[in-house]
Design a protein around this nucleic acid. Structure first.
Lengths: 215, 215
DNA sequence: GAAAACATGTAACCGGTTACATGATTCT
DNA sequence: AGAATCATGTAACCGGTTACATGTTTTC
């Protein structure tokens, strides 16, 4: 459901073609809610069929047209409604922490590599989000510029809330990095004696044998 | 794919019935990877058909049997392989931060309520994860006890990695709370003048009008 | 005898993932 | 003329979500 609202959000600034949206999306919304191009076009058609957006064909070259999408009043209403409805929090879905809880089953090398990948991932994210924050603060982000043009009276809130969101993501990433670094130290301390070796397996498997060979 | 590996992880401690697994799952794995009961039973049958676990019927009452599942060697191999394979990180999926980035579209009250829900959610999580951490440290968690019985030689790693994982989650939750609190202050500072009012809409809608009424 | 816990699902749906697929236009 | 960019998808799959559904056994 969020893809749809991210697209509506983008279209509140100005009408755009599918391709424009894909690009805008990649440059802004995808930093918070990833979606592949192949999901965006069909979603746009669905939104159009539901009357949230309007698709106007505009000429492209001599022989063809492209769709220019603009948000309708129903679309604005739907977006506002989503914005004014408190999100439900429910699912816990964290494969990295799930894995970490069972690191004794990995080789120390694999566990280390996992955490290094974790660090790498969040370092990259943090950089992206940090540069987004500065782009917002300088007004150098093009998506922001278009938005400020559309709503000059709200420029302060527009900028501040976006910076707030991205700074939160940066802080989150930094926390993840700190955590993973602590994990690396822990692996160094425990590696060897305490891990369940990956090939040997005899010790762990014996303790499991009772029923698995029954019948 | 993680549900399957969480189930394998639980079964490395000892064989269990579906119902035992559901309970164990709820008490431990679901704190990291939520899954409803209705997903667990079918997944078990799938895993059985793939030879990762073995289902032995054991008598239950006079007339019926229940399935006792035990991990097979293929299951242990599959679990180890997963543990030794670095996870891929890709999708960014964060509706809370997506929404926060567009808080100017919500009423200040709705934005505030969203952040309060955020705080509430993570406070609850943090408490759960924190109490899990202490249960692990005391050896008072029953799932842990079973596991230590199965692998006495690795008790230190087993405990430390689990504490590590849960402490990471606690830290994450605390960070989320801090972030949301900062957001509440921001809303107080910006509320009113800067928000795009939810009913009025005339100002924002005018700027959108050019194409939406075309055709 | 009733309640709580045990036991095990099915079915419909839907959002997201992956892989594949193609052609037009503009720029150099 | 060729490359880059613009433009727009389809199809198959799969994991997860929601809602519904039912019967047994043990305990009080």
């Amino acid at each position: 459901m969020s893809l749809r609202h991210a697209l509506l959000a983008l279209l509140t600034s100005e009408p755009m073609t599918g391709y424009d949206l894909v690009k805008s999306y990649r440059a802004s919304a995808s930093l918070v809610w990833h979606a592949p191009d192949s999901q965006i076009y069909p979603e746009l058609r669905k939104m159009k069929s539901e009357g949230l957006i309007l698709g106007t064909p505009v000429p492209w070259g001599e022989h063809t047209t492209k769709q220019q999408y603009s948000i309708t009043e129903a679309g604005v209403r739907a977006f506002r409604e989503w914005m004014n409805t408190t999100l439900e929090y429910s699912r816990e879905r964290d494969p990295a922490h799930l894995k970490a809880a069972y690191f004794e089953w990995a080789t120390p090398e694999a566990a280390r590599e996992q955490l290094l990948a974790h660090i790498d991932h969040y370092r990259t994210r943090a950089e992206i989000w940090r540069s987004m924050t500065t782009a917002l603060a300088n007004h150098s982000d093009p998506t922001l510029t278009r938005r400020l043009r559309a709503f000059p009276e709200s420029w302060e809130a527009i900028i501040e809330y976006k910076i707030f969101a991205y700074e939160g993501l940066v802080a989150q990433a930094e926390q993840q990095i700190t955590w993973a670094e602590r994990g690396l130290e822990l692996i160094d301390r425990l590696s060897g004696r305490a891990h369940l070796s990956p090939e040997g397996g005899s010790a762990p498997l014996e303790t499991l044998g009772t029923t698995q060979r029954s019948r």
